[in-house]
């Protein structure tokens, strides 16, 4: 029973970290689908979100839920500004330049955060309503912290699903990512779609930051986790929204199990081993399909 409990907890904490990989991977996929750019600054968006949440809680003494809401709004604005100021002037330029720009943003955000007073290069943390609370069911003990990450991620994904399936703007965003020229013929403003894509990606990043901070701490380099969300996105096929989430979960659970039951060091390569195995069997990723065109 004890071993079972242990495995269960390992898996659960893997799922909760996997949710965060999934959220960041979702950010990658959203931007890639719309603009064919891989946004290397996605992890840094999460870092900025975490710092904003940390400031709101520690300096302004706002409640967790207010912070969640406010951070989402600030990140939305942040995403909009990035798109308008940095990316829109580059429309029509080679994709490679755009990718380089996102790498530049990654470094820029890190430097700026390290220069801001009270942020800097130190490590911070903040408490949440879920800190150090446990859920007991017979002998199985689960921490609320992990459970809350899973529940909040599910809610966010549900909201995204509803947006993309049932709202006109959501359908228009899917349409634009499938056929940009046809979207233009429909009168869809591609600029607005791109802007909204960045807004949603920034929100996803900020959300991931708030969820991750209580279990890892807020730090300038926390965006490096984006490097682990990348295999999650690739695993899912890089074109698929459910794929990104499932990819994140697989990477998270594997990593957690490898960390608990394999020698030190395996934890960090586990994700990549899984990635290589899956790509050998399915080169397009789990949810990806070969691109076909009907003539």
């Amino acid at each position: 029973m004890n071993l079972l409990n242990e495995i269960l907890q390992t898996i659960l904490s893997g799922i909760s970290v996997g949710c965060i990989y999934g959220l960041i991977a979702l950010g990658f996929v959203m931007i890639f689908k719309a603009t064919e750019v891989i946004n290397f600054a996605q992890g840094e968006l999460m870092m900025v979100g975490a710092f904003i949440a940390f400031s709101l809680i520690s300096f302004f003494h706002l409640s967790y839920w207010t912070t969640l809401l406010l951070t989402t709004l600030i990140m939305a604005l942040f995403g909009m500004i990035i798109e308008r100021v940095v990316l829109r002037p580059l429309v029509g330029q080679p994709i490679f330049s755009l990718v380089m720009v996102t790498i530049g943003m990654m470094i820029f955000f890190k430097s700026v955060v390290s220069m801001i007073p009270f942020w800097g290069t130190d490590t911070y943390g903040f408490g949440t309503p879920f800190t150090e609370k446990l859920v007991r069911y017979n002998e199985i003990i689960v921490s609320w912290e992990h459970l809350s990450i899973i529940i909040l991620t599910l809610l966010l994904i549900l909201a995204l699903f509803i947006f993309f399936r049932f709202t006109k703007m959501g359908v228009a965003m899917r349409a634009t990512s499938q056929n940009q020229l046809a979207a233009v013929y429909m009168g869809i403003s591609v600029n607005r779609v791109f802007s909204l894509t960045w807004v949603i990606s920034a929100i996803l990043g900020g959300f991931a930051g708030i969820l991750l901070s209580p279990i890892t701490f807020v730090h300038m380099n926390m965006g490096l986790i984006g490097l682990k969300a990348m295999p999650a996105a690739i695993l899912g096929g890089f074109y698929s929204i459910p794929g990104a989430v499932v990819g994140g979960l697989i990477i998270g659970v594997t990593e957690s199990l490898a960390g608990a039951y394999l020698p030190i060091g395996w934890k960090d390569v586990a994700a990549w081993i899984i990635l290589i195995l899956v790509l050998v069997i399915r080169p397009y990723g789990l949810f990806g399909t070969e691109l076909k065109k009907k003539v």
């Binding site: 359908v171 899917r174 349409a175 499938q178 056929n179 020229l181 046809a182 979207a183 013929y185 009907k294």
Partner: peptide
């Protein structure tokens, strides 16, 4: 030309 429907919608 070539229809250009949104294939996955």
């Amino acid at each position: 030309e070539g229809r250009e429907v949104f294939e996955e919608l």
